[in-house]
Amino acid sequence: MTGSAAAALQVEGLWKSFGPLDVLQGIDLEVAEHEVIALIGASGSGKSTLLRCINLLETIDEGRIFIEGEEITAKGVNVDRIRRRVGIVFQSFNLFPHMRVIDNVTLGPRKVLKRPASDAEADAMRLLERFGLAEKAGQLPDRLSGGQQQRVAIVRALAMQPDLLLLDEVTSALDPELVAEVLNVIRELAAGGMTMLIATHEMGFARDIANRVCFLDAGRILEQGPPAQIFAEPREARTRQFLTRIIEAGRL
């Protein structure tokens, strides 16, 4: 997948520890433009931390991260400028509860991209409409269901027109019947060519949507490959063990 152009995202030898705990132990990962990568692995394997490092929400201990060839972990880099290009959606939505849906979506475009409010709102309405949320625009987030809130969070990230979208277990906090509506949104984004890095426990979804699946174990990418190979014939014993447990739990 590595053409002549720089990769959308490149992670080189990334280490990150919290105190004595090495959460990431030398992650190497390259993501091409339009590629969809699913990160799977047990809780605590480092999926979320990896995503937070890529969005510079965590400082890293060792290694380098590039976005379209530009090192974002270099000294003196403007983190706010980097974050405009990388969207992230959190497990717990993290919408701004004091703002209407439309204001949640337009905050970044208005304050960071300095776009006129009317333009930002027109664009936001188009996005909300596309994801079936137009009639929620004037409401406060706590009037919405979890699935709707998470879709708003995705729209909020998209409104910044990021080159890369990071999704951190975005369905884990949802009631089962609300998961599908969020996954459908992500499917549509993948079909539209959005480059995405998705940490998920939804194995069926990962298998359907991802170009490549990375299995994280104890802070390393233990195995990666096309979904068909990872889910059908994993090479590593740990991957097999993990997938067996998932199947036993009825989640695949």
């Binding site: 706010d80 974050r83 405009r84 990388v86 993290n94 905050l107 970044g108 960071v112 910044m160």
Partner: peptide, 15 residues
Amino acid sequence: SQTAAARSLGLSQPQ
């Protein structure tokens, strides 16, 4: 997480 969400949109700390 509220600050994290705001910063992830590119808002500065004061913003």
